Simulated scan of single mutants.
Amino acid sequence: MAFTSNSGSGPMADINVTPLVDVMLVLLIIFMVTAPAMSYPTEVDLPQPTVTPPTPPVDPPEPIRIRIDAGGTVSWNGSPTPMSTLQAQFDVEGARGDVGTGTPDASKQPDIEIETDRDAEYEVLAKVLSRAKNAQLAKIKFVNAGE
């Protein structure tokens, strides 16, 4: 410690903090080395291999092409369909895969191929997708006509 007089205002005590900082750094390094690394396990459900591959359906249903135009018009295999009847049509197609277990058999359902115009509204697409999901359709694809 050094005592100095500061223009007559009394003695001033300065503490040397260098040894304190050195001790703290050594303790920090010791804790960093000795503390175990924290690891959190993450569960991942991986698909299990099957003994026999599933057989493809003998006569797969024809795919259904849904077209959404820029004006919001929805077409079912080329014919315009109002949104009010779209859910009923999806329910009929979704019932094809109903095997009574609560889980639909996707191999018996047709592919739903959705094609949208570049300027189509997202809201119409979202309504079509939600109706397909409500009908428990499992095979939904997005296709491009090659514009």
Rank of each mutant, 00 (worst) to 15 (best):
P63W: 11
P63C: 10
I64L: 13
R65I: 10
R65W: 08
R65N: 12
I66Y: 02
R67S: 11
A70W: 01
A70T: 09
G71C: 02
G71D: 14
G72P: 10
G72A: 06
G72S: 00
T73W: 01
T73R: 01
V74M: 05
W76A: 03
W76K: 05
N77G: 04
N77Q: 12
G78T: 01
S79D: 10
S79Y: 05
P80L: 02
P80I: 04
P80N: 04
P82D: 13
P82N: 11
M83K: 13
L86V: 07
L86G: 09
L86K: 00
Q87G: 02
Q87I: 14
Q87L: 15
Q89N: 15
Q89Y: 09
F90L: 09
D91R: 07
D91Y: 03
V92H: 07
V92W: 02
E93R: 11
E93W: 08
G94A: 04
A95H: 09
G97Q: 08
G97M: 09
D98T: 05
D98V: 11
D98C: 01
V99F: 00
V99S: 12
V99N: 14
G100A: 02
G100D: 02
G100C: 01
T101H: 00
G102M: 10
G102C: 08
D105F: 00
D105A: 05
S107H: 06
K108T: 08
P110Y: 11
D111S: 11
D111L: 15
D111M: 13
D111C: 01
D111F: 14
I112Q: 06
I112Y: 06
I112M: 15
E113K: 12
E113Y: 03
I114A: 00
E115Y: 02
E115W: 00
T116F: 02
T116Q: 13
T116G: 04
D117F: 08
D117N: 15
D117H: 11
D119Y: 12
D119C: 00
A120K: 06
A120C: 08
Y122I: 10
E123K: 13
E123Y: 06
E123F: 06
V124L: 00
V124N: 03
L125P: 09
L125I: 10
A126N: 12
K127L: 14
K127M: 13
V128S: 00
V128Q: 01
L129G: 00
S130C: 02
S130A: 14
A132N: 09
N134L: 11
A135W: 11
A135H: 09
A135V: 06
Q136G: 01
